[in-house]
């Protein structure tokens, strides 16, 4: 991030037959900082959404360490590793409400944790309000879709399918 000066180097226009483009009366445009704060910057709104978001990231992170590492251990390491995973294995696990609950909580926490993380990244890096809005809409759609689909599958899973 060496500001935007390098970018302007490429498009800089040289002198044309001794005529300078910029002088005291016609200075070059300066490069404005992105979304800078002015007097018109809206005053603070009431509400604790950002605080709850921040807290949720910390708390869900702690729970996810246990859930995800446990999940990876069971799925990939213990008892024959990845080769044991099949329809029968999943059907066997989801017969127990404990594993149903485990997977459900993991799905919700991981999806919301990831979505909130991406939301902050979009807020940090998207410069234009339009880009920001549409990237977030895409993110929310994908999140809602995945969470609903996953929840539906966990609750309506039928081991005797077909």
């Amino acid at each position: 991030m060496s500001l935007n000066k390098e970018a302007t180097d490429a498009t800089a226009i040289g002198d044309v037959e001794g005529v300078t483009l910029y002088d005291v009366d016609h200075p070059a445009p300066v490069i404005e900082a992105p979304r800078k704060r002015t007097k018109k910057t809206p005053k603070a709104t009431r509400g604790n959404f950002e605080m709850y978001g921040w807290l949720f990231m910390r708390l869900s992170g702690i729970v996810l360490v246990v859930l995800v590492l446990g999940h990876l251990l069971i799925q990939l390491v213990l008892d024959g590793g990845v080769s044991k995973i099949g329809f029968a294995f999943v059907a066997g696990r989801w017969a127990s409400p404990f594993w149903q609950a485990w997977d459900l909580i993991m799905l919700w926490l991981a999806m919301l944790h990831g979505a909130n993380g991406l939301r902050t990244i979009i807020n940090d890096y998207a410069e234009r309000d339009n880009t920001r809005f549409w990237l977030k809409m895409l993110l929310y759609t994908a999140t809602v879709f995945t969470v609903l689909l996953g929840t539906l599958v966990i609750f309506t899973f039928d081991p005797n399918i077909r």
Partner: peptide, 12 residues
């Protein structure tokens, strides 16, 4: 030193 003078050039 990083020089920039808008009265001469738009480049730094």
């Amino acid at each position: 030193i990083r020089r920039f003078n808008p009265e001469i050039s738009d480049e730094a």
